[in-house]
Write a protein that binds this DNA or RNA. Structure first.
Lengths: 194, 194
DNA sequence: GCATTTATATGATGCCCATAATATTAAGCG
DNA sequence: CGCTTAATATTATGGGCATCATATAAATGC
Protein backbone atom coordinates (compact mmCIF):
# COMPACT_ATOMS: atom_id res chain seq x y z
CA UNK A 1 0.00 0.00 0.00
CA UNK A 2 1.26 3.43 -0.83
CA UNK A 3 1.34 5.37 2.40
CA UNK A 4 1.98 9.05 2.97
CA UNK A 5 5.48 10.25 2.18
CA UNK A 6 6.53 10.32 5.80
CA UNK A 7 5.07 6.97 6.76
CA UNK A 8 8.08 4.82 6.05
CA UNK A 9 10.31 7.24 7.89
CA UNK A 10 7.95 7.14 10.86
CA UNK A 11 7.88 3.36 10.82
CA UNK A 12 11.66 3.20 10.67
CA UNK A 13 11.75 5.49 13.64
CA UNK A 14 9.38 3.35 15.65
CA UNK A 15 11.47 0.27 14.87
CA UNK A 16 14.62 2.10 15.84
CA UNK A 17 13.21 3.31 19.15
CA UNK A 18 11.94 -0.17 19.96
CA UNK A 19 15.39 -1.54 19.15
CA UNK A 20 17.18 1.07 21.26
CA UNK A 21 15.06 -0.01 24.20
CA UNK A 22 15.27 -3.75 23.57
CA UNK A 23 19.00 -3.72 22.96
CA UNK A 24 19.65 -2.13 26.34
CA UNK A 25 17.22 -4.45 28.09
CA UNK A 26 18.37 -7.73 26.55
CA UNK A 27 21.70 -7.06 24.87
CA UNK A 28 22.44 -7.10 21.16
CA UNK A 29 22.32 -10.88 20.95
CA UNK A 30 19.46 -11.35 23.34
CA UNK A 31 16.98 -9.60 21.16
CA UNK A 32 15.35 -10.84 17.95
CA UNK A 33 14.29 -9.05 14.82
CA UNK A 34 10.75 -10.39 15.08
CA UNK A 35 10.46 -9.25 18.68
CA UNK A 36 11.52 -5.72 17.87
CA UNK A 37 9.17 -5.49 14.92
CA UNK A 38 6.30 -6.75 17.07
CA UNK A 39 7.16 -4.12 19.67
CA UNK A 40 6.83 -1.54 16.88
CA UNK A 41 3.46 -3.00 15.92
CA UNK A 42 4.66 -4.78 12.79
CA UNK A 43 5.60 -8.28 11.66
CA UNK A 44 9.12 -9.35 10.97
CA UNK A 45 8.82 -9.59 7.18
CA UNK A 46 8.88 -5.86 6.57
CA UNK A 47 12.10 -5.45 8.51
CA UNK A 48 14.41 -5.73 5.53
CA UNK A 49 12.71 -2.80 3.85
CA UNK A 50 14.17 -0.62 6.60
CA UNK A 51 17.53 -2.18 7.45
CA UNK A 52 19.81 -4.39 5.38
CA UNK A 53 20.32 -6.81 8.26
CA UNK A 54 20.20 -7.17 12.01
CA UNK A 55 23.65 -5.76 12.59
CA UNK A 56 22.76 -2.50 10.84
CA UNK A 57 19.79 -2.18 13.16
CA UNK A 58 21.96 -2.77 16.21
CA UNK A 59 24.42 -0.12 15.06
CA UNK A 60 21.60 2.38 14.56
CA UNK A 61 20.04 1.37 17.88
CA UNK A 62 23.29 1.95 19.78
CA UNK A 63 23.63 5.39 18.22
CA UNK A 64 20.01 6.11 19.08
CA UNK A 65 20.46 4.87 22.66
CA UNK A 66 23.48 7.13 23.21
CA UNK A 67 21.55 9.99 21.61
CA UNK A 68 18.57 9.42 23.88
CA UNK A 69 20.49 9.22 27.10
CA UNK A 70 22.66 12.14 25.99
CA UNK A 71 19.56 14.30 25.48
CA UNK A 72 18.17 13.08 28.77
CA UNK A 73 21.33 14.13 30.59
CA UNK A 74 21.30 17.38 28.63
CA UNK A 75 17.83 18.15 29.94
CA UNK A 76 18.83 17.30 33.50
CA UNK A 77 21.69 19.78 33.36
CA UNK A 78 20.25 22.44 31.05
CA UNK A 79 21.31 26.01 31.72
CA UNK A 80 23.58 25.11 34.61
CA UNK A 81 27.05 26.38 35.28
CA UNK A 82 29.67 23.66 34.73
CA UNK A 83 30.14 22.73 38.38
CA UNK A 84 26.39 22.51 38.95
CA UNK A 85 25.91 20.54 35.77
CA UNK A 86 28.53 18.05 36.91
CA UNK A 87 26.87 17.58 40.25
CA UNK A 88 23.44 17.29 38.66
CA UNK A 89 24.80 14.74 36.22
CA UNK A 90 26.12 12.55 39.00
CA UNK A 91 22.88 12.88 40.94
CA UNK A 92 20.97 11.88 37.85
CA UNK A 93 23.21 9.00 36.81
CA UNK A 94 24.16 7.22 40.00
CA UNK A 95 20.64 6.42 41.19
CA UNK A 96 18.25 3.59 41.97
CA UNK A 97 16.11 4.85 39.10
CA UNK A 98 18.97 4.26 36.66
CA UNK A 99 19.73 0.90 38.25
CA UNK A 100 16.11 -0.17 37.78
CA UNK A 101 15.78 0.84 34.12
CA UNK A 102 18.59 -0.34 31.89
CA UNK A 103 16.21 -0.12 28.93
CA UNK A 104 16.19 3.64 29.07
CA UNK A 105 19.55 4.11 30.75
CA UNK A 106 23.11 4.75 29.68
CA UNK A 107 24.50 2.14 27.29
CA UNK A 108 27.89 2.33 28.99
CA UNK A 109 26.38 1.03 32.21
CA UNK A 110 24.09 -1.43 30.47
CA UNK A 111 26.08 -2.90 27.61
CA UNK A 112 29.72 -2.79 28.68
CA UNK A 113 30.27 -6.52 28.73
CA UNK A 114 28.24 -7.26 25.60
CA UNK A 115 30.04 -4.89 23.34
CA UNK A 116 33.50 -6.43 23.11
CA UNK A 117 31.81 -9.52 21.64
CA UNK A 118 30.11 -7.66 18.82
CA UNK A 119 31.29 -7.12 15.28
CA UNK A 120 33.39 -4.11 14.33
CA UNK A 121 30.54 -1.84 13.16
CA UNK A 122 28.70 -2.24 16.46
CA UNK A 123 31.84 -1.72 18.49
CA UNK A 124 32.59 1.44 16.55
CA UNK A 125 29.14 2.86 17.24
CA UNK A 126 29.66 2.14 20.91
CA UNK A 127 33.10 3.71 20.94
CA UNK A 128 31.72 6.89 19.34
CA UNK A 129 29.09 7.10 22.07
CA UNK A 130 31.60 6.53 24.85
CA UNK A 131 33.83 9.27 23.49
CA UNK A 132 30.97 11.74 23.25
CA UNK A 133 30.09 11.04 26.87
CA UNK A 134 33.68 11.54 28.04
CA UNK A 135 33.94 14.81 26.11
CA UNK A 136 30.72 16.11 27.56
CA UNK A 137 31.98 15.54 31.08
CA UNK A 138 35.44 16.88 30.31
CA UNK A 139 33.79 20.09 29.12
CA UNK A 140 32.26 20.58 32.54
CA UNK A 141 35.53 20.19 34.42
CA UNK A 142 37.38 23.40 35.34
CA UNK A 143 39.79 24.46 32.62
CA UNK A 144 42.54 24.44 35.17
CA UNK A 145 42.10 20.72 35.79
CA UNK A 146 45.23 18.89 34.70
CA UNK A 147 44.41 16.03 32.32
CA UNK A 148 40.72 16.78 31.95
CA UNK A 149 40.01 13.96 29.49
CA UNK A 150 41.70 11.47 31.71
CA UNK A 151 39.72 12.55 34.76
CA UNK A 152 36.52 12.54 32.71
CA UNK A 153 37.20 8.98 31.53
CA UNK A 154 37.91 7.96 35.10
CA UNK A 155 34.60 9.46 36.20
CA UNK A 156 32.69 7.67 33.44
CA UNK A 157 34.35 4.42 34.52
CA UNK A 158 33.42 4.92 38.13
CA UNK A 159 29.85 6.06 37.48
CA UNK A 160 29.04 3.33 34.97
CA UNK A 161 30.87 0.75 37.06
CA UNK A 162 28.89 1.78 40.11
CA UNK A 163 25.53 1.48 38.38
CA UNK A 164 26.55 -1.89 36.92
CA UNK A 165 27.74 -3.04 40.34
CA UNK A 166 24.54 -1.85 42.00
CA UNK A 167 22.62 -4.11 39.60
CA UNK A 168 24.46 -7.08 41.06
CA UNK A 169 23.24 -6.25 44.57
CA UNK A 170 19.78 -7.75 44.87
CA UNK A 171 18.74 -5.91 48.00
CA UNK A 172 17.37 -2.55 46.91
CA UNK A 173 18.04 -0.74 50.18
CA UNK A 174 21.65 -1.91 50.16
CA UNK A 175 22.04 -0.93 46.53
CA UNK A 176 20.59 2.47 47.41
CA UNK A 177 23.21 3.00 50.10
CA UNK A 178 25.97 1.94 47.74
CA UNK A 179 24.77 4.45 45.16
CA UNK A 180 24.36 7.29 47.67
CA UNK A 181 27.85 6.78 49.03
CA UNK A 182 29.24 6.59 45.52
CA UNK A 183 27.57 9.90 44.60
CA UNK A 184 29.30 11.59 47.50
CA UNK A 185 32.66 10.08 46.69
CA UNK A 186 32.42 10.94 43.01
CA UNK A 187 31.41 14.53 43.62
CA UNK A 188 34.19 14.82 46.13
CA UNK A 189 36.63 13.52 43.57
CA UNK A 190 35.39 16.09 41.06
CA UNK A 191 36.27 18.81 43.47
CA UNK A 192 32.65 19.45 44.38
CA UNK A 193 32.85 19.17 48.13
CA UNK A 194 29.31 19.78 49.27
CA UNK B 1 32.40 -47.80 30.18
CA UNK B 2 33.35 -48.04 33.79
CA UNK B 3 36.25 -45.68 34.33
CA UNK B 4 38.37 -45.20 37.40
CA UNK B 5 36.61 -43.74 40.40
CA UNK B 6 38.03 -40.29 39.87
CA UNK B 7 37.38 -40.16 36.15
CA UNK B 8 33.91 -38.67 36.28
CA UNK B 9 35.07 -36.07 38.76
CA UNK B 10 37.97 -35.19 36.48
CA UNK B 11 35.68 -34.92 33.49
CA UNK B 12 33.28 -32.70 35.39
CA UNK B 13 36.20 -30.55 36.29
CA UNK B 14 37.36 -30.23 32.70
CA UNK B 15 33.84 -29.27 31.63
CA UNK B 16 33.62 -26.74 34.42
CA UNK B 17 36.94 -25.13 33.57
CA UNK B 18 35.99 -24.95 29.90
CA UNK B 19 32.70 -23.35 30.92
CA UNK B 20 34.36 -20.82 33.21
CA UNK B 21 36.49 -19.72 30.30
CA UNK B 22 33.74 -19.75 27.67
CA UNK B 23 31.26 -17.94 29.87
CA UNK B 24 33.63 -15.04 30.37
CA UNK B 25 34.56 -14.95 26.69
CA UNK B 26 31.07 -15.15 25.23
CA UNK B 27 28.64 -14.48 28.05
CA UNK B 28 26.21 -16.94 29.61
CA UNK B 29 23.84 -16.83 26.65
CA UNK B 30 26.50 -16.67 23.99
CA UNK B 31 27.88 -20.07 24.77
CA UNK B 32 26.39 -23.46 23.97
CA UNK B 33 26.46 -26.74 25.83
CA UNK B 34 27.84 -28.58 22.81
CA UNK B 35 30.62 -26.04 22.38
CA UNK B 36 31.73 -26.34 25.99
CA UNK B 37 31.69 -30.12 25.87
CA UNK B 38 33.72 -30.07 22.66
CA UNK B 39 36.21 -27.75 24.37
CA UNK B 40 36.51 -30.36 27.10
CA UNK B 41 37.09 -33.07 24.48
CA UNK B 42 33.64 -34.64 24.73
CA UNK B 43 30.37 -34.64 22.84
CA UNK B 44 27.24 -32.91 24.03
CA UNK B 45 25.27 -36.01 24.96
CA UNK B 46 27.16 -36.80 28.12
CA UNK B 47 26.60 -33.36 29.52
CA UNK B 48 23.49 -34.25 31.49
CA UNK B 49 25.38 -36.88 33.44
CA UNK B 50 27.31 -34.02 35.04
CA UNK B 51 24.85 -31.15 35.31
CA UNK B 52 21.05 -31.18 35.43
CA UNK B 53 20.81 -28.38 32.87
CA UNK B 54 22.66 -25.50 31.32
CA UNK B 55 21.78 -23.04 34.06
CA UNK B 56 23.37 -25.25 36.71
CA UNK B 57 26.55 -25.28 34.66
CA UNK B 58 26.52 -21.50 34.35
CA UNK B 59 26.08 -21.15 38.10
CA UNK B 60 29.01 -23.48 38.74
CA UNK B 61 31.05 -21.74 36.05
CA UNK B 62 30.52 -18.32 37.62
CA UNK B 63 31.60 -19.64 41.01
CA UNK B 64 34.62 -21.25 39.38
CA UNK B 65 35.49 -18.05 37.49
CA UNK B 66 35.41 -15.99 40.67
CA UNK B 67 37.42 -18.67 42.41
CA UNK B 68 40.04 -18.67 39.67
CA UNK B 69 40.50 -14.95 39.49
CA UNK B 70 40.42 -14.76 43.28
CA UNK B 71 43.29 -17.25 43.51
CA UNK B 72 45.10 -15.41 40.76
CA UNK B 73 44.86 -12.15 42.65
CA UNK B 74 45.81 -13.98 45.81
CA UNK B 75 49.03 -15.18 44.17
CA UNK B 76 49.80 -11.67 42.91
CA UNK B 77 49.57 -10.26 46.40
CA UNK B 78 50.81 -13.19 48.47
CA UNK B 79 52.73 -12.33 51.60
CA UNK B 80 52.40 -8.59 51.18
CA UNK B 81 51.49 -6.05 53.77
CA UNK B 82 47.99 -4.63 53.21
CA UNK B 83 49.10 -1.40 51.56
CA UNK B 84 51.46 -3.23 49.22
CA UNK B 85 48.83 -5.84 48.44
CA UNK B 86 46.37 -3.11 47.51
CA UNK B 87 48.83 -1.46 45.17
CA UNK B 88 49.82 -4.78 43.64
CA UNK B 89 46.19 -5.64 43.15
CA UNK B 90 45.53 -2.45 41.23
CA UNK B 91 48.65 -2.94 39.16
CA UNK B 92 47.53 -6.46 38.37
CA UNK B 93 43.90 -5.65 37.62
CA UNK B 94 43.95 -2.40 35.69
CA UNK B 95 46.15 -3.54 32.81
CA UNK B 96 46.24 -4.15 29.08
CA UNK B 97 46.74 -7.80 29.86
CA UNK B 98 43.42 -7.93 31.71
CA UNK B 99 41.74 -5.92 28.95
CA UNK B 100 42.97 -8.40 26.35
CA UNK B 101 41.84 -11.56 28.15
CA UNK B 102 38.29 -11.48 29.42
CA UNK B 103 38.25 -15.30 29.30
CA UNK B 104 40.64 -15.54 32.22
CA UNK B 105 39.84 -12.18 33.79
CA UNK B 106 37.59 -10.90 36.52
CA UNK B 107 33.91 -11.70 35.98
CA UNK B 108 32.92 -8.30 37.38
CA UNK B 109 34.72 -6.59 34.52
CA UNK B 110 33.64 -9.11 31.94
CA UNK B 111 30.06 -10.01 32.76
CA UNK B 112 28.56 -6.96 34.42
CA UNK B 113 25.98 -6.25 31.76
CA UNK B 114 25.06 -9.87 31.12
CA UNK B 115 24.26 -10.74 34.65
CA UNK B 116 21.18 -8.68 35.36
CA UNK B 117 19.47 -10.58 32.52
CA UNK B 118 20.13 -14.00 34.00
CA UNK B 119 17.89 -16.10 36.18
CA UNK B 120 18.00 -15.83 39.95
CA UNK B 121 20.45 -18.71 40.61
CA UNK B 122 23.03 -17.22 38.25
CA UNK B 123 22.57 -13.74 39.67
CA UNK B 124 23.04 -15.10 43.17
CA UNK B 125 26.31 -16.79 42.24
CA UNK B 126 27.51 -13.54 40.76
CA UNK B 127 26.46 -11.56 43.80
CA UNK B 128 28.38 -13.92 46.08
CA UNK B 129 31.48 -13.42 43.99
CA UNK B 130 31.15 -9.65 43.97
CA UNK B 131 30.79 -9.60 47.74
CA UNK B 132 33.85 -11.77 48.23
CA UNK B 133 35.85 -9.41 46.07
CA UNK B 134 34.68 -6.34 47.96
CA UNK B 135 35.50 -7.98 51.28
CA UNK B 136 38.96 -8.93 50.15
CA UNK B 137 39.73 -5.35 49.24
CA UNK B 138 38.11 -3.95 52.36
CA UNK B 139 40.41 -6.18 54.40
CA UNK B 140 43.43 -4.48 52.87
CA UNK B 141 42.26 -0.97 53.69
CA UNK B 142 43.63 0.59 56.89
CA UNK B 143 41.42 -0.17 59.87
CA UNK B 144 41.13 3.52 60.49
CA UNK B 145 39.45 4.08 57.13
CA UNK B 146 35.91 5.31 57.71
CA UNK B 147 33.39 3.18 55.79
CA UNK B 148 35.83 0.57 54.55
CA UNK B 149 33.21 -1.53 52.76
CA UNK B 150 31.87 1.47 50.97
CA UNK B 151 35.31 2.55 49.78
CA UNK B 152 36.09 -1.01 48.75
CA UNK B 153 32.89 -1.19 46.69
CA UNK B 154 33.75 2.12 45.12
CA UNK B 155 37.19 0.83 44.18
CA UNK B 156 35.74 -2.34 42.67
CA UNK B 157 33.35 -0.18 40.65
CA UNK B 158 36.12 2.03 39.37
CA UNK B 159 38.56 -0.77 38.60
CA UNK B 160 36.03 -2.99 36.84
CA UNK B 161 34.48 0.01 35.11
CA UNK B 162 37.89 1.09 33.89
CA UNK B 163 38.76 -2.30 32.43
CA UNK B 164 35.34 -2.50 30.79
CA UNK B 165 35.74 1.00 29.40
CA UNK B 166 39.22 0.24 28.12
CA UNK B 167 37.70 -2.62 26.11
CA UNK B 168 35.57 -0.07 24.26
CA UNK B 169 38.65 1.85 23.14
CA UNK B 170 39.90 0.11 20.04
CA UNK B 171 43.31 1.75 19.93
CA UNK B 172 45.59 -0.25 22.21
CA UNK B 173 48.02 2.57 22.92
CA UNK B 174 45.20 4.87 23.90
CA UNK B 175 43.63 2.16 26.05
CA UNK B 176 47.04 1.67 27.67
CA UNK B 177 47.25 5.34 28.61
CA UNK B 178 43.72 5.27 30.00
CA UNK B 179 44.61 2.28 32.17
CA UNK B 180 47.91 3.73 33.36
CA UNK B 181 46.28 6.99 34.37
CA UNK B 182 43.49 5.10 36.08
CA UNK B 183 46.01 3.05 38.10
CA UNK B 184 47.57 6.25 39.42
CA UNK B 185 44.23 7.82 40.27
CA UNK B 186 42.97 4.69 42.01
CA UNK B 187 46.08 4.23 44.10
CA UNK B 188 45.96 7.89 44.98
CA UNK B 189 42.35 7.47 46.09
CA UNK B 190 43.36 4.52 48.26
CA UNK B 191 45.77 6.70 50.08
CA UNK B 192 48.78 5.13 48.36
CA UNK B 193 50.44 8.22 47.01
CA UNK B 194 53.49 6.86 45.27
C1' DG C 1 37.19 -63.87 30.63
C1' DC C 2 32.51 -62.80 31.03
C1' DA C 3 28.57 -60.19 32.78
C1' DT C 4 27.38 -56.05 34.77
C1' DT C 5 27.55 -51.40 35.17
C1' DT C 6 28.01 -46.73 33.97
C1' DA C 7 30.42 -42.92 31.32
C1' DT C 8 30.12 -41.13 27.01
C1' DA C 9 28.36 -41.04 21.97
C1' DT C 10 24.84 -40.91 18.50
C1' DG C 11 20.85 -39.43 16.87
C1' DA C 12 16.24 -37.30 17.34
C1' DT C 13 12.83 -33.68 18.71
C1' DG C 14 10.96 -29.34 18.99
C1' DC C 15 11.86 -24.59 19.30
C1' DC C 16 13.67 -20.08 17.97
C1' DC C 17 16.23 -17.30 14.88
C1' DA C 18 17.89 -14.42 10.58
C1' DT C 19 17.00 -14.03 6.09
C1' DA C 20 14.49 -14.24 1.82
C1' DA C 21 10.75 -15.14 -1.58
C1' DT C 22 6.31 -14.31 -2.45
C1' DA C 23 1.69 -12.49 -1.55
C1' DT C 24 -1.42 -8.93 -0.17
C1' DT C 25 -2.99 -4.51 0.48
C1' DA C 26 -4.39 0.29 -0.23
C1' DA C 27 -2.89 5.21 -1.53
C1' DG C 28 -2.88 8.24 -4.99
C1' DC C 29 -1.88 9.19 -9.88
C1' DG C 30 -3.91 9.16 -14.39
C1' DC D 1 -12.49 4.60 -10.89
C1' DG D 2 -9.11 1.38 -11.66
C1' DC D 3 -4.10 0.62 -12.30
C1' DT D 4 0.37 1.03 -10.54
C1' DT D 5 3.44 0.95 -7.00
C1' DA D 6 5.46 0.67 -2.62
C1' DA D 7 4.83 -0.84 2.31
C1' DT D 8 3.89 -4.52 5.05
C1' DA D 9 2.33 -9.55 5.85
C1' DT D 10 2.71 -14.46 5.12
C1' DT D 11 5.17 -18.27 4.47
C1' DA D 12 9.46 -20.85 3.60
C1' DT D 13 14.35 -22.23 4.41
C1' DG D 14 18.26 -23.54 6.73
C1' DG D 15 20.81 -23.46 10.83
C1' DG D 16 21.59 -23.57 15.79
C1' DC D 17 20.14 -24.62 20.26
C1' DA D 18 18.78 -27.38 24.81
C1' DT D 19 17.22 -31.49 26.03
C1' DC D 20 16.37 -36.39 25.88
C1' DA D 21 16.17 -41.43 24.39
C1' DT D 22 18.77 -44.81 23.08
C1' DA D 23 23.11 -47.08 21.75
C1' DT D 24 27.89 -48.23 22.47
C1' DA D 25 31.88 -49.30 24.86
C1' DA D 26 35.17 -50.58 28.40
C1' DA D 27 36.66 -51.25 33.37
C1' DT D 28 35.81 -53.73 37.35
C1' DG D 29 34.02 -57.75 40.22
C1' DC D 30 33.14 -62.37 40.03
Amino acid sequence: MRYSDTHKQETRDKVLKAAAKAVRAKGPDGVGVAEIMAEAGLTHGGFYAHFPNKEALIVAAIDEAFGQSGRRFGRATAGMAPAQALAAFVDFYVTLEHRAHPERGCPVAGLSSDLPRQGAPVREAYERGVRRMIERIAGWLPETTPDRDSLAASLVAEMSGTVALSRAISDEAEAGRLLAEARDRIKHRMGIVQ
